[in-house]
Design a protein around this nucleic acid. Structure first.
Lengths: 335, 335
DNA sequence: ATGAAAGCGCTAACAA
DNA sequence: TTGTTAGCGCTTTCAT
C-alpha cells in the first residue's frame, strides 16, 4: 500500500506537507505543490479513509436510510436516491446504504461506530421511533417527511398545503367555480397522516379564498368505491365541473367513474391529480408532482450544510409544481 | 466519545483484553468476559470503525455498484438490493452505495482509499471497462452478469441457456410439437448481448433434443412489429401451437397479436415468457423469472466467502424457475 | 489468562 | 513556507 510517507519521500518533503497539499489547509509554494502532486499521481496514492477518519473524526460518508419494503413507489424512490447520491458526490461524500428495517438500532450502530458523519432519513412518519434518537444524536440528520414536532431537527418535505391550494388556483383560473376533492381512504385520515390532512386543509382554504364552493370525500381503492364517491360528490354538488384527486390508487378509476356517470374529462369535469409524475404522464392528467429529485438534492445539501456547522431551518417545504396535461381545460360557458 | 480505554478502566482490565473479548481471538475467563461485557453495555461502547479499519485493514463494508439510470427495471433491482443488504448484514457487513455512473474511476477511488473490502457490481456487460480493473484490483469482487471472459473473476447470473431450455421442456411436456421463439429486438443480437444469445441457444438445443420443430424471430417493441413477427412465425410454421417470448417490451402485444391472427391463448397457442415475475403475474403468463432475491443473496454470500479468503467458482449460474400460469395448457388433439 | 506497548496512516498543533 | 511530532482508537505481537 502507498502511504503518505511514501509520497513524502518520493517528493522529498515532509508527510505533513503532502497532507497540506491534499487538504489545502495551509499555503504551499507552487513548486512543492506540483512536485507533490506529481508524486501522488506517479505512485497512485489514495489517502487511507480509515486513517483519515481516525485523525479527523470525519468520514465523509453519510448514511442514507431507505424504506426498501414492498409497497414504496419505486420510480420516485429511485429518482430521490439518484439525486441524493449525485449531490453527495458533488461534495466529495460517499453514501452508506441503511435499510429502514434495521430500525433505530441500526442507526445507533452506524452512528456509534462513527461510520458516518450524518444521516439522511427517508419516509419519516408522524410519530417515528427514530426521531427521538436522531434528535439526541451527535451526528446531524435530515429527515424527509414531517414528524409531529420539528424543533431541533432538519426536515424537508413537499408543501402539501400549497399543493392542495395550487390545484384550486389552477382550476379557478380556468373558470371553475364548483370543485370536488377526492381524498385518500378514510383510514388514512383516521390515523392522522399529516400529508393527507394538510393537502385537504390547503385545498379547502384556497377554495374559500377564491370564493369557490368545495366538497370533499375520501375514496377507497376499488372501482365501486371510487364510483360511489364520485357519484356522491356529483349529487352533493351537481354543478361540480372539476375534481382534485389525492389518491394514487383511486386515480385509475376516476375517469371511468366519471364516464359511467355521463361526464367527459375534461369537458364536463376537469381533473387534477396530486401524484408522482410518471402516473400523471401515463394517464394524461394535469398534476402536482412529488419533486423527487429536488427533495433528494435539497435534503443532501441541507445535510452537508449541517455537517459544516451551518445552522438550518427546522423545516423546509418545497413549493409544489403543477404540470398541465389533457385532463384540464378552461370552463366553457354552456349556451 | 467512549473508547476502548474507557471500557478497560471501567472493567479494571487492559485495553487488549477488551479487544479480545470483542473479537474472540483468544480465550478469556468467563469472569472477565462478563465483567467487560457489562462495562461495554453500561458505557454504550461502540468500536470506532475507522480505528479498527486502520489497525486491521478491514472495513467490514462492501461496495454495491448499482445502475441507477432510467430504464432499469426497478422492482427487480429493489428486490436484489434488499436481498444483498440483508445478506451483508447477516455477516455484519455494511453496504456503501456506488452508482454505476461514477464508472471505473469511482471504483478506483473507493478501492484506493480502502473504504471497502470488496465490490458487488450489478449489470456487468459483455465487455465492460470496469472488468479489467476489477480483475487486477486487490479487493475481491462479485459481478452480476457475464462478461466475455470470467477467468479470475467471480460472476453470478441466471442460467439463461437453461431458461430457454426450461420453456421448451415445459411446452414439450404439455404435448406441443411446434414451438416459436420471439426474441429481443434484432439490435440486441447485433451487439452480442450474451444473455439473449444464450437464451436462444438453450431454446434451440432443447428443441432439438426433444425432437421439436422450432422457429425463431426477433421482435421490436411496438404493436405493428410484434404483430408482423408473430404473423411471420405462424406463416413459417402453421402448425405452431406454442410461443416462447424473451422480450419484455413486446410482451404486452403478444396476446393481442395472436388474437388479431385468430389464435386464442392458451387454447390455440400457449405462451411462455422469460421475464420478471411481476410482469408475468400481471399478465397471467406462465414464465421463467429472474430470481432477483436469490441473485442478491448468492452474490453477497460469494463475496463474503472471497473476503474470508475462500476460493470461489468463476461462474455461478442460477437454475431457472418456471411458474405455471394461465397462458399454457396441455395441447388438445383436435377432432 | 492477562498486560504492555508498538504500530496502522493520517492530521494538526507546535517549531523553525 | 516547511518540518517534527504527538496523538486519533484499535489490534496484536511479545511478555509475563
Amino acid at each position: 500500500m502507498v502511504t503518505i510517507a511514501d509520497v513524502a519521500r518520493h517528493a522529498g518533503v515532509a508527510p505533513s506537507t503532502v497532507s497540506y497539499v491534499l487538504t489545502g489547509k495551509r499555503s504551499i509554494s507552487t513548486q512543492t505543490r506540483t512536485k507533490v502532486r506529481e508524486s501522488i499521481r506517479l505512485l497512485g496514492y489514495h489517502p487511507h479513509a480509515g486513517a483519515r477518519a481516525l485523525a479527523t473524526s470525519r468520514t465523509n460518508v453519510v448514511a442514507l436510510v431507505l424504506p426498501l419494503r414492498p409497497g414504496v413507489y419505486l420510480p420516485v424512490l429511485m429518482r430521490f436516491v439518484t439525486a441524493a447520491v449525485t449531490t453527495a458526490r458533488r461534495h466529495d461524500m460517499d453514501v452508506l446504504l441503511v435499510t429502514a428495517d434495521q430500525g433505530a438500532q441500526g442507526l445507533r450502530r452506524v452512528a456509534g461506530s462513527a461510520q458516518v458523519d450524518g444521516f439522511l432519513v427517508m419516509d419519516v412518519e408522524l410519530d417515528d421511533d427514530r426521531v427521538p434518537l436522531l434528535r439526541q444524536m451527535g451526528q446531524p440528520s435530515v429527515l424527509i417527511g414531517r414528524p409531529a414536532a420539528v424543533k431541533g431537527l432538519t426536515c424537508v418535505d413537499l408543501d402539501f398545503e400549497a399543493a392542495g391550494a395550487r390545484c384550486v388556483d389552477h382550476l379557478a383560473d380556468l373558470g371553475h367555480r364548483y370543485i370536488g376533492f377526492l381524498g385518500a381512504p378514510s383510514v388514512v385520515y383516521q390515523r392522522n397522516a399529516g400529508y393527507a390532512q394538510r393537502t385537504m386543509a390547503g385545498f379547502g382554504a384556497a377554495a374559500m379564498r377564491r370564493g369557490i364552493a368545495s366538497t370533499a370525500l375520501p375514496a377507497e381503492d376499488d372501482y365501486e368505491s371510487v364510483l360511489a364517491s364520485v357519484r356522491s360528490l356529483l349529487r352533493t354538488q351537481p354543478a361540480m365541473t372539476a375534481l382534485v384527486v389525492h389518491n394514487e390508487a383511486a386515480l385509475g378509476w376516476v375517469a371511468s367513474s366519471l364516464r359511467a356517470l355521463g361526464r367527459k374529462v375534461p369537458d364536463d369535469v376537469a381533473v387534477v391529480a396530486i401524484c408522482p409524475d410518471e402516473l400523471a404522464e401515463q394517464m394524461h392528467l394535469t398534476s402536482v408532482q412529488l419533486p423527487a429529485e429536488e427533495l433528494g438534492r435539497q435534503a443532501m445539501e441541507l445535510l452537508v450544510s449541517r455537517l459544516n456547522g451551518q445552522p438550518t431551518a427546522p423545516l423546509t417545504l418545497l413549493p409544489p409544481k403543477l404540470s398541465g396535461r389533457a385532463s384540464t381545460a378552461p370552463r366553457l360557458r354552456r349556451a
